[in-house]
């Protein structure tokens, strides 16, 4: 017999794990942002599942008929909020990615970090030992898509 609850929870935890893997293991900024979106989707599903029971009706009264058992409206309101917050942050992240690419010509996280450290050090007037970092050519070769 198939347990629907178990399937749903596996889906939520699966999305969370895939999202975390995307954030931690990717080096391309757009893919990392994809990972954040997946992680948020998983967290939202988990939140909605928190007090879910099979067989409850939607928490809306239609034409004066009150169902016996209604779903918990609180997590629904919370997920609504979380989705809207997510899209605001997503838009900001994409704007920033746009500016970063315009400034550094790359979206590779390691390369961006290297260039940023150079910028900071240059502003501070310190010369950075370049040996500790991989040569730029290797980094750009790994970058996907291309600018």
């Amino acid at each position: 017999m198939l347990d629907t609850g178990l399937v749903l929870y596996s889906g939520a935890f699966g999305l969370i794990l895939i999202g975390i893997a995307g954030i931690v293991l990717s080096s391309h900024l757009v893919r990392i942002i994809f990972g954040v979106a997946l992680l948020e989707a998983g967290a939202n599903l988990l939140l909605l599942l928190a007090t879910w029971h099979e067989g409850a009706a939607a928490p809306i009264i239609v034409a004066g008929r009150v169902p016996d058992r209604m779903a918990d409206p609180v997590p629904q309101a919370l997920v609504l909020t979380a989705i809207v917050i997510g899209v605001g942050i997503l838009a900001l992240a994409l704007s920033l990615a746009l500016r970063v690419q315009r400034a550094y010509g790359t979206l590779d996280m390691h390369e961006v970090r290297r260039r940023m450290e150079q910028d900071i050090a240059g502003e501070a007037g310190i010369d950075l030992p370049s040996s500790s970092h991989a040569p730029a050519a290797v980094q750009t070769a790994r970058q996907e898509g291309g600018a």
Binding site: I20, I32, V36, E40, A43, V100, Y104, R113, D119, I120
Partner: peptide, 21 residues
């Protein structure tokens, strides 16, 4: 500055990751 955009983006990613957790 270019550096501040890059730092903000990296901060945003860490912070969104934390918020989702």
């Amino acid at each position: 500055s270019a550096g501040s955009f890059a730092a903000t983006l990296r901060y945003l990613i860490v912070s969104s990751f934390g918020a989702a957790l």
